[in-house]
């Protein structure tokens, strides 16, 4: 069966959840970057399709060790979270709860910021994977820090140690982990099944 041009939002969420929750590895999040065409310029780009954030208790411990965000940075994050919560709850019709007022971890923040990002002309790790049709698997904080990609370097700064981008037909599936995760044929197989992608899993 050929891959659909676009996955529906509900289907996407189910696939992302199944992949992350069912994986042997500890993935912190999964994001599907959707290929689209800018109506004004005709340029193709990858934009936010959907994402699934899992996170771990372990992330918090690692943040403590790393020093975490400053108090000012935490206030900034909470402020943005309150605004976002207000937007999706109809201008503050529902009272903010602990989901808004509690500390925002580095990986949560990285995931939220991702919603604002897009990649044009093969830019960034997701764009490169889409442009070349070859998966990119970057393991280790040092390799992320040295990657020729702002997003990968930003990921490292927020405590991620592994980033994977796999082209899946109408976009790119990105996985991130605060653990060191080496290339896994098993997870590539799951992606192939769940996202119906038929490209080889090695460059």
């Amino acid at each position: 069966t050929p891959a659909p041009a676009y996955f529906s939002q509900e289907t996407l969420q189910q696939r992302l959840q199944a992949l992350i929750e069912g994986a042997r590895e500890s993935w912190t999040y999964g994001i599907f970057w959707q290929s689209s065409v800018d109506a004004a310029t005709g340029a193709s780009f990858l934009g936010w399709g959907d994402g699934y954030y899992k996170g771990y208790e372990e992330d918090k411990r690692k943040q403590r060790v790393a020093g975490a965000a400053s108090a000012a940075e935490q206030e900034h994050r909470k402020c943005v979270l309150r605004e976002l919560h207000s937007l999706i709850s109809g201008g503050g019709s529902s009272a903010p709860d602990e989901a808004v007022d509690e500390e925002v971890t580095d990986t949560e923040w990285f995931f939220l910021v991702s919603m604002t990002q897009s990649f044009v002309n093969g830019g960034g790790l997701p764009g490169q994977a889409f442009y070349t049709g070859a998966p990119a698997w970057v393991t280790g904080a040092d390799r992320l820090a040295a990657a020729p990609c702002d997003r990968a370097r930003q990921a490292q700064l927020f405590g991620l140690q592994t980033m994977v981008c796999v082209p899946v037909g109408s976009g790119v599936l990105e996985l991130g982990s605060t653990d060191v995760v080496f290339h896994s044929p098993e997870i590539m197989g799951k992606i192939r099944v769940l996202f119906n992608f038929s490209s080889p899993d090695a460059p």
Partner: peptide, 30 residues
């Protein structure tokens, strides 16, 4: 107007729901 495209709106709603579940399960971060 709608300040958030539908995909991001749904993603954000899920993010907040999951965050609330995590916090309920493990307690406050601080």
């Amino acid at each position: 107007g709608d300040l958030l495209p539908m995909a991001r709106r749904k993603s954000l709603q899920r993010f907040f729901e999951k965050r609330k579940q995590r916090l309920t399960a493990v307690g406050p971060y601080t």
